[in-house]
Design a protein around this nucleic acid. Structure first.
Ligand SMILES: [Mn+2]
Ligand SMILES: [Mn+2]
Ligand SMILES: [Zn+2]
Ligand SMILES: [Zn+2]
Lengths: 126, 126
DNA sequence: GCTATATTTGCAACACAGTTGCAATAAGAG
DNA sequence: CTCTTATTGCAACTGTGTTGCAAATATAGC
């Protein structure tokens, strides 16, 4: 169930991701679009965009969902796997272009892994 | 705000963690204790036990909170940092005794990291 | 451009994990 | 045993996300 029609809501939502590669929380998206787009629509668009490989999502440790643009993913799968970094000072969350190797675990089959790193971003360090 | 008094609720809760080192979700704890302990009490005990370094917690990707026993932690800090593994077949979640190295990131200070690995557990593989 | 149709949307109501205020209960120090 | 204070249960609440359904609208075909 991906995106079929190019709607105003879709353009408004995607424009939120236009300027940067930072992640944006569903809650923040709903807040900044609330004049124009119903929250149900925001959630539904996010779901479909994730299905399409346009956005990917992850949970922060406080249980809220974040979205960011994919690079090189498609509806057949998310190939763009990477850790995420949350600044505990300013709250900004972004995707890290970083390879973290998960050692294989005897007797278990690993399908995916999510890494959330917390700390202070370069903006907040200075 | 840690645990001060040895209560019946506390014993009942801790007995859930007695037999294994698997993680247990807050939701599952509330369910299995519901005859004897109010859910508010369960949440409050879990908070305090985490403060005391007796339990540690983490979120699974569906946004629910899990708890497991600590090894060598105290109220002054959680030292026992490790990845968690969730079996997508049977739902079991456990702590991995495994060191994963997070490379340092230029311009950022890392304080903590959470790693959640998903796959199939040894029980479900056979 | 118009029409038909399937997709998308908004709304209200809901689900569900977790929290809060407060009065009642009970641990345990003395 | 008594008193103080931590703990508990309850009911009501918060916040994120979901669902059913009727109304709106994108767009393919003409
Ligand atoms: Mn990302
Ligand atoms: Mn653990
Ligand atoms: Zn920052
Ligand atoms: Zn399993």
């Amino acid at each position: 169930m991906g995106i079929v029609r190019r709607t105003k809501s879709l353009d408004l939502l995607m424009s939120q991701f236009a300027d940067s590669h930072d992640a944006i929380s569903a809650v923040a998206l709903i807040e900044s679009l609330k004049k124009d787009v119903n929250k149900t629509t925001v959630y539904r668009l996010l779901d479909r965009l994730e299905d399409d490989g346009v956005l990917h999502s992850f949970m922060s440790s406080d249980g809220i969902k974040w979205y960011a643009k994919c690079k090189g993913c498609s509806s057949s799968g998310h190939a763009d796997v990477h850790p995420h970094f949350q600044c505990t000072d300013c709250g900004k969350v972004d995707c890290l272009d970083l390879e973290v190797t998960i050692p294989s675990i005897p007797g278990r089959k690993i399908n995916s892994s999510q890494i959330l790193i917390q700390g202070t971003c370069d903006n907040c360090l200075n």
